[in-house]
Every structure is written in C-alpha cells, then in structure tokens.
Design a protein around this nucleic acid. Sequence first.
DNA 1: ATTTTAATTTTTGTATACAAAAATATTTAT
DNA 2: ATAAATATTTTTGTATACAAAAATTAAAAT
Lengths: 229, 229
Amino acid sequence: MAKTSTRNGARTLQIAEELRQSIVRGELAPGTVLRQEDLAKRFETSRTPIRDSLRLLERQGLVSVPTNKGAEVTLLNADDFAEISEMRALAEPLALRHAIPNLTNRHLEVAERIQAKAETASVETFSDLNKAFHASLVAPCNRPRLLAHLASLSDLNERYLSYAVTTLDYVARSHDEHRELLQACFARNADQACSLLEQHINDAKNSLLARMQDARAVIHDGGYDICPS
Amino acid sequence: MAKTSTRNGARTLQIAEELRQSIVRGELAPGTVLRQEDLAKRFETSRTPIRDSLRLLERQGLVSVPTNKGAEVTLLNADDFAEISEMRALAEPLALRHAIPNLTNRHLEVAERIQAKAETASVETFSDLNKAFHASLVAPCNRPRLLAHLASLSDLNERYLSYAVTTLDYVARSHDEHRELLQACFARNADQACSLLEQHINDAKNSLLARMQDARAVIHDGGYDICPS
DNA sequence: ATTTTAATTTTTGTATACAAAAATATTTAT
DNA sequence: ATAAATATTTTTGTATACAAAAATTAAAAT
C-alpha cells in the first residue's frame, strides 16, 4: 500500500498492478465504485496517476470508466464467463499449435514445476499458478498480439476462478487434465495437445457454469450477476 | 481540429477518435512521435485530456506509450499483419456462426447497402466501408467481448488496407467474395458462410502479404517495416 | 577529429487549483 | 406525506505549475 518506489512513471504501473491483483483476488468486489480521491489517499499520491491506472485497468476489462462517473469494478456473470471461455477455447489451442515446434524440454520442465506447485498450493494461489501454467505453454508461439489477447482473457478467467473454486472437485480434475496435456506436449503431439487443451477449457467452463447456476439458485433466484452488490 | 464541443468528458473521446482516424488513414505515419504539447495545441486543450486519449489509443493498439518517452504511432510489418489476419480468420467466423440465427433480412439489407456503396467508393472510403460490412454481419452475435475484440482487430486491419490497397485487383476480388458471403447469409447456410468468411480473410492476408513483399523489395531490401520512418 | 563529460533544453510525470457534471440533501408546493 | 424543484455537496474533468527524466547541445579531454 505504501509508496515503495518514487521513480517517475513507474508509479502508475505499480498502482495499476496492485489494483489489478485486488480485483482479480476479489478483495475489491465486482460493482465496487472506485473514487479517485480515495485511491489517491490509499496510494499516497494525487488523482492524476490514479486516473492513468484506471485507464490501464479498463483496457484489461477489470473496471469500466464512464465519463463523469466513478470507475466501477466490472461485474461478473455467467454469460460473460461463457463468452470468455469460448474465446479462450478458440485462441489458446491456436497459440499452442504454433508454440509446440518451439517448445524445448526446458520450457516443459518449467511448466511441470509450475504444475507441481499448483497441486500443493492453497486455494488463493491456485488460480495464479493455473494462469502461469497456461501461459508457460503458449509463450514460445512467437505471436505477441495473440499472447496479449490470451493474457487479457486469462486475467478475466482468473477472477471467475477465484470466485468459484471453493470446492476442490474441479481442481482435482484440472490437475489431471494439465498432466495429460503436458504428456502430449512432451510427445510433441500437436493435434492431441490442442484437442486436450480445448477440452480442458470447455470442462472448466461447464464446471464453473454449473456452480454459478447453483450459487445463483441459493442466493437470489431471479438475479443474474454473481455480485450485484 | 477545432474545439466543437466543450462538454466535460466528451472531449477526450472526441480527440481519441480524431487521432484514431488520422492514424488509420495513414495521415499520421507509423513511427511518428506524438508530443503531448503539440497535440494539446492542435486540439486547443491541455495535456491532461491528451494523455487520456493516448491511453485509449494505446488500448486499441494504435500507439505505444512508453513511460517518460513520447507516444509513438505503432509500426506496421508483415508479421504483425499476418498475426492479425490469423486471429480474425479464427474469431470472425465464430461470431458469424452465432450471428446467423439472429440475422434478420433487415440486417442483411443493411449489409447489402454498405457493400453497394463500397463498390462505387473511392480508395479512401473503401477500407472504412469494408470494416462496416464485416461489422454489420457479426453484430447480432450477442457477444460483446467478442465484438470488441473483432472491432479492435478490424481497426488494425484497416490500417494495413489503407496502406496496401493502391491497386484495385484485390478490391475487385474482395467485392466478389463479399457478394458470395451475403448469398450464403441470405440462405442462412452457416457452414458455408463461415467457410467463405475464413477464406475471404485468408485471401486478403495473402494478397496483401504479397504486395508488402514487393514493396519491401523495391524500397529497401534488407528492412522489414513498411514505414520505419 | 573523436569521444566523453557536463550543462542546457525539452518533454514527460505528478500535484494542485479550478470548472463542470452528477449525486445528494433541502425546500417548497400540492 | 409525497413529489417536484431547488440548493448544496460531492466527484469527476481540465488547466496550470512544478519536478523528474530524457534528449540535446556545448565543452573538455584524449
């Protein structure tokens, strides 16, 4: 929270990153209105870098910044999650297909290590490591725009994971699927790897959508948003 | 250029839009450094809204805004164009598939009218109408994130089109493909429409890549960027 | 003459002050 | 008491001033 680095320019990025984590981890609930003055106080700075940070977060789809109104942490809902999953299921296998010819064993060992860590990790760090695992496999695809697109989708996905991964049945299956995917990558079997990845993303979608349906049924029947606050 | 509306907040969006057009149309060449003070003078405002605008354009991938350095109109190169085309070839047929069940004849007539206009349009307005045609077909897909993604890719694509569409052989083929695509949509033949759309995007990619190769060979053999300025 | 270093200028980042819009509270009329 | 209108407060948008970083120019050393 405190001002650790006073270097010019870096501050804005630092604030954006801290806010990003707060949002992704759910500390800043969906629908929360972010007052510029409050944030300025929290980060011991003026409103100018705060406004810059909010623009960066808007680009990542984590807040909406309507003119003349307070910025708002974007809401989560089932349709949105389904859409994000659909886009990932399309784009990530493409990236993996291009990455596989460039994947060295070193790359795969890094992915393996991340996965091992994820399997013993707490619920809080799971979604972070899950994201890192996916990123590590597609990283060598040599397509910066595609990677940026996936990173953005991955961040959005992480938010939903943090919210919905409270029971561990999905997590166990996810680990199995990651292991299987790793095997296909080690074998450099592009078709199988891409197919497994697509399935994995769709599995996650279906599991979480089912959970969201349940949660909705319990909390408020008619509503739609997870956290209308 | 002049201040037409002084309403609070709207100014930033207006500036961003005007800059966007300048960049997409090529009036602001790739690699051009954008000085905040210069832009402030041009738009008769202060640097604050200029900085906001630059952030918005950064989100659209039209400028890069490194800290403590001047913002720069992003460069164009063949790899980048190929990547953008690849992403469009994947995402746009998906959107079309979801749109077709919702496509009314009204929608298609609008698309037809845009296409008719495009066929008699000047080179300057062609890329604009081309973008509008594509947008009109996928609009009813009911997936806001996917549409935003496509809009962003479409803007980037427009830049390349503006640069490379100087001869009209590609334009003629593009018109044919658009007409064929429209027929498939009128027939509500989703498979055919999606396949035609994918082909159309790949055709455009190959045509323009070939042109870029030629241009490169003429202007500077070793280089890569179209406009290294 | 060339390279390195230092001084200067330019440009961006941040803080603060003021203006415009939105939200809230108050008053007034019914 | 309720609803509409008005006044007040709060909050965002913009302009300006100052600080820090980068770029440029000038000077010095080799």
